[in-house]
Amino acid sequence: MHLFESGPSHPSAPDDEVRWTRLEVAFTVGIVGCLLFATWQLGDLLVRDWLAGWVGESALREDLVYYGVAFTAALAALGGTTRSLGHTGRFRRTVGRSLLWYGALLLISASGMGAIEYLPEVAAGLFGAGVLIAAVYVLQRRYFTRERVRQRRLRNDNCPRCGSGLRPGAHYCSQCGRRVGEDCPECRGYLRRSDQYCAACGWERTGGES
């Protein structure tokens, strides 16, 4: 399974959830950069002003504040991303993806800096590689699963198998032959494979999508 794509894609039918426009990429990079800057500035503010009496001259307490802020913000961003990615609005999805990458980059950078500071060089390298592998695994399992990509394609009227654009009323994909529609058993109206109810007569699909 690939990180961003779970099956073969078609060049004429991009997956709207996965492939961003250039403007969305620019906004995402800007949002992520600003959030990363604000996070480290918050840590600096806590160390220098708000918790200066507790931190004192202790390098360990200073690191605890910085890494505590970083890990808390990263986990909060990753934990709150699921609902944003589930919405169909482009604005909500763009913000959700920005928070996703902010949380992932913050977690990776904080883990890497902590490993370099407190572990020998070889162990730090191995630890950093382990964090990256774990991050890729979590992102794949939670946000870019085969089922999520399939559902996004269906919402965009693309074939769930190959990503090709579907013709209106199509029963089969013209590129890979995947069955994508059928006739309603009640009124013979058109049913997509993802439809739970017939839009023409209200017939309910009780057996689920096959």
Rank of each mutant, 00 (worst) to 15 (best):
P120N: 02
E147C: 10
G33S: 04
V136D: 11
F71C: 02
T28G: 12
A38H: 01
G103A: 03
L75F: 11
T94E: 03
E62A: 07
L126H: 03
E57H: 11
S84C: 10
R92H: 05
D44A: 15
L35V: 12
I133R: 13
R148L: 09
S111M: 11
A73P: 00
A104G: 06
E121D: 10
R92M: 01
F127I: 01
R92C: 02
V138N: 14
M113F: 11
Y137A: 15
R92I: 05
E24A: 05
D63C: 09
T28S: 15
A104H: 04
V138R: 14
Y67D: 10
A134Q: 12
S84T: 05
L100G: 10
L99M: 07
E57L: 10
L85Y: 00
E57A: 09
L60Y: 05
V47R: 02
G53K: 14
L36G: 00
V95R: 04
R90F: 00
E57K: 05
R148D: 06
A73G: 06
T72A: 11
V65M: 12
A77D: 08
L45G: 01
A76Q: 08
A104R: 12
G56A: 01
V69H: 03
T88H: 08
A135E: 14
C34Y: 13
G68F: 07
E57M: 08
G30H: 04
L105T: 13
V55I: 03
A135F: 13
A73C: 06
R83T: 05
T28M: 13
L75H: 11
L99D: 12
L78V: 08
Y137N: 14
L119F: 00
V122C: 08
L75Y: 06
A77T: 09
A76N: 02
A76F: 08
C34I: 14
G125P: 02
T81I: 03
L42D: 01
L75C: 02
G96I: 01
L119S: 04
G53I: 12
G80T: 00
R61K: 07
M113K: 13
C34R: 06
T72M: 00
V55W: 00
T88D: 14
R22G: 11
G56C: 02
G130R: 00
Y66G: 12
I116N: 14
V29P: 07
E117F: 07
R141V: 07
R48E: 12
A129Q: 09
T39S: 04
I133G: 11
H87S: 13
S111Y: 04
I116V: 10
Y66F: 15
G130E: 09
D63H: 15
G79Y: 03
G130P: 05
G80M: 03
D49S: 09
A129M: 13
Y67Q: 14
D63W: 14
E57V: 07
